[in-house]
Design a binder for these strands. Sequence first.
RNA 1: GCCCGGAUGGCGAAAUUGGCAGACGCAGCGGACUUAAAAUCCGCAGACCGCAAGGUCGUGGGGGUUCAAGUCCCCCUCCGGGCACCA
Length: 860
Amino acid sequence: MSSISAFRVPSVYTRRDMADENELRYDPAAIEPKWQQRWAAEPALYAAEPVDCGKPKYYVLEMLPYPSGQLHMGHVRNYSIGDSLARHMWMRGYNVLHPMGWDAFGLPAENAALKNNTPPRQWTLANIAAMKIQMDRLGLGYDWACEVTTCLPEYYRWNQWFFLRMYEKGLVYRKKSKVNWCPECATVLANEQVVDGCCWRHETTQVDQRDLVQWFFRITAYAQELLDGLDKLDGWPEKVRTMQRNWIGRSEGTDVDFFLEEVQGPGTKGLGTQPTRIRVFTTRVDTIFGATSVQLAPQHELVAAFTAADSKLKAQVDEMIDQQKKAREAGDLGAIEKHGVPTGRFAVNPYNGERVPIWVANYILADYGTGAIMSVPAHDERDFEFATKYGLPITQVIKPTDPAVPQELPFCFEEGVLVNSGAYDGLSCEEAQKRLQEIAERGAFGEPKVTFRLKDWGVSRQRFWGTPIPIIHCESCGLVQVPDDQLPVVLPDQIEITQQGGSPLSRVPEFVNVACPNCGRPARRETDTMDTFVDSSWYFYRYTDAKNANAPFDSEIVKYWFPIDQYIGGVEHAILHLIYSRFWTRVMRDLGLIVNDEPARRLFTQGMVIKDGAKMSKSKGNVVSPDEMVGRYGADATRMYALFAAPPDRDLDWQEDGVAGVSRFLSRVWRLATKYAPVARTGRGQSVGVPTGLSLKLLRKLHQTIAKITLDFEGRWHFNTCVAAIMELVNEIQAADAQLAAGEVPAPVMHELLRSLVLLLAPFAPYLAAELWEELGEEGSILRAPWPVSDPELAKEDELEIPVQINGKLVTVVRVAAGADARAIEAAALAGEKIQMRTAGKTVVKVIVVPGKLVNLVVK
RNA sequence: GCCCGGAUGGCGAAAUUGGCAGACGCAGCGGACUUAAAAUCCGCAGACCGCAAGGUCGUGGGGGUUCAAGUCCCCCUCCGGGCACCA
C-alpha cells in the first residue's frame, strides 16, 4: 500500500508549476528503488580504498548477524547507527571500511534441515540472499567485496589453521570433563552459554552434566592480560569492562597446605599413594588461626580415597554429588541448603599444629581454587552458617578496629587486628597476610596465589554444521594434525541430519575414515566441530583481506586497518563474543600475525528494542517486521525513527506513530526542497555575501545545526537530538515560507541553506538526500560530498536573551548584545521594569552575573 | 547478597560545564483550507488556583551543599541488566 496519500498541492506552488503535481509528492517507494539500482551499479561507492590511498582510515564495524532469514528491529537499529557513522566519515574524507558478513554456522540450520529436509548449506545461503536484499533495501552502505560467510570453506579453513597453530603452541588441549549438555541441541555448551541452568538458545531446556573428552582453548593463559587490558580500553563502556572483570574474576590469596593426620590401622588402606597434605585456597590467610575445620568438595580426590574404605561415607557423598548435580541442572546451586558429613579424618593447621576435623560439604566447588577450604566460621558467612548447623567451634581471631562495627558473628571485614593468633596477635590483617605468606613459603607449605574464575574455553561441539576440528586419531601415532596443505577439512555435502545423539559426522564413513598423515595406516578423523564463537572471534580481520587464499589475511593490510575504530553491537555479547575476540587477538599477536593487542579501540553497545514494555521477540509476539515498516514508510523514515526515538545506548520503545511522524517530517523536507530547488539552482556557485535579516537568521540556525551535529558525530552520538536539530532547522525555514516565496532571501542563500540541509540529512536519510542532491543540480555522489563546516562567525548570535532571577526564581528576560560584559548585563537587568517593581523598597544584597547565561539578584 | 544502569508532561524524550525544566516528536485540543473527510498549514498545550493580570507547586521519596540543583553529596524506594555458595 502506498503510505503517503496524495496531498493537495500548496496554492503558491500550484500556480507556478501545476504540471508537476506528481513530483511534489514524497514517495519513498519510487525514490528508494531508483537509488538502490544506481548504488548497486557503482560498488566503488562503498568500497574501502587501498592502504596507500593517503587518506586517514576509519574502520566502522557492526556485529555480523546470524542468517536466520529475517532482519529484526535490533539489527535495523544496530546497522542504522553504524551506517550513519560510516556515511559521516566518508563525507569527512576518511578511507572507510564498512563491511558486513554472516555468522553462518550454527544449530538453526540443522534444525531447519530436519524440519524441511533442506541441506543446512542451502538453507543458510538462501537466508543470506534474503537478508542481503533487506539490507540493500534499508540502504545500508556495505563493501560487499569483502563479505565474509563463516560457513564457507574459504573462511573456516582458517579456523582450522588457527586451531593447529594454537595446538602447536599448547593453547589447545583435550581433557575429559563434565560438560554442559543441552538435550535440545544434543551438544555441549560452554559455561557462558548456560543461563540459569538452561540453554542460552532454549531458555526452557535444562542443561545436563555429562562426562566427555573435549577440546579446550587455553584462554586462562591470558586471564591476567585480558584483565589488565580492560584498564586501557577507555573507549569501551564501563559496564562492559566491569562485566568482563567480574567474569575473569581475579582473586588474590594464599594456597596453604593442611597436613593430613596419619591414621594407623585398617582405615589407612587406599590412602597409600594419596597426598599427605590438603591444599586449600583462601583470600584470608590472616584468619587461619580461626580455622575450625577443613571442608572438601564432594568431588575432591581425597574424598574418593576416604570413601573407598568407608561405604557409609561413600553413600552420603554420592548423594551429595547427586543433589549438587540436580541443583546445577535446575540453576539454583546457590539456593540449596548447606550440608556436609564428617569424614572422621583430621587435618593439622601448619601454623599452630591444631587438629581440625575434615568434612565434605556441598557448598565447596570442585572446580574453583583447590576444591578445598579452611572453614573460619567466625569470619565468613557461609562457614558460620555451616558451623552453627553442625555445632562446630567458632573462634574469633580478628577484632575490628572500628568500634562502629556491630559486635555480632560473623565478622566479615578487613579492617582489624589479630587476636587468638599466637605470635601474630596485634598485627593488622594486611600485615598478617604478608607475614603468614612468608612463613608458608619458608616452610614450603604454601604460597601467595592468584585464582581466576575464568575457565578454559570448551570448543568441542557434537554437531554437523560447524568447522571440523582438523585432527586425526591414529592408533599408532595418537593425535595427528591435519597437514596445512590438506586444509580445509571440508564438511561432507551429503549428510543425513537426525536427532540421534553424538556427532553427525561420526556417521559419515567417507569423512571419518582417513589415512594417518604420519604413518599412512587407517585412522579416524575427529568428528567434533568447533563452537561458532570461534568464527566470530576473528571475522573482522578477514574483512580486510577477504579473498586471500594463502593466509587468513595479509598482516600489512591488517596493520593499516586495526584496531577497529568503532565496533557497534548489542550488550548481550559483552562477555562471550567480546572476551573470546580479545583472546583471539592476543593469540594472533603472539603468533606474529598482527601487532595490535586489542581488536577494537571503541565499543558502543546499543540498547534493546522494546515494544509494549517487553523486548521485541517472537516468543512475546510483539515483533515489528522491518520489511513492513520499509514498505509503509520507506527505509529513510524507518532508519531515522530508529535513531530519533531514543539515544542509541538506551532501550528504544517502538511506536509506529513515531515512524509516521518521521515520515511526515521527511515529506516536509521534500516539499520545501523541491519547491525552492529551482531558485536554489540559480544561486549555485555564488557567494552568500554578507547576509542580513532573514538570510542571516536562517544561515545562523543552519550553522548552529551543523556545529551541533558535527560535534555529536565526534563521540556523544546523541543522534536523537541530531534529528531533532534538523527538524528545528526545517521548522524555522518553513516558518519563513511566505517570505521565501516572496523572494526575500537571495538565490545563493537559498542554495546554501538547502544544500547544507541535504548534506546534514545524508547520513540519516541517504535516499532522500541523494534524490534532493540531484534535484538541487549538484554533481557527483552526495556520499563523497564534503561534510559541511560550521562557520563560527555565522553561528554566533549577536543578541542574547538573559534570564533575570530574583532569589533564584525567574522574573523576566532581558536582551543584551552577545559580547556584553558583566557590568552591562547587570545594568540591563536592573533597568528592567519588572525588576524595578519587584525590588522597590527592598535591598539588593548581591548580584550574580554569569555572562551569556543569567542574572540572579539576591534581594531582602 | 554484590556490581552496573535507570526513574523528568498523557507517551517517546531534551537540558553537552551547577545557570530560563520539558527542545524535538507522538497522541490531544482549537482554527484555516474543503460540500465533507483525509492530507496540509496556523495556533494551544506540565499540574493546580484565577475571567484575567498573575500566583503556587513541579524532574521517584527524604535530607543537605549553593545566589542557583534534573544535574553535586548523604539516606531510602521502585524498575531493568549482569554476577552469584568463587573461599
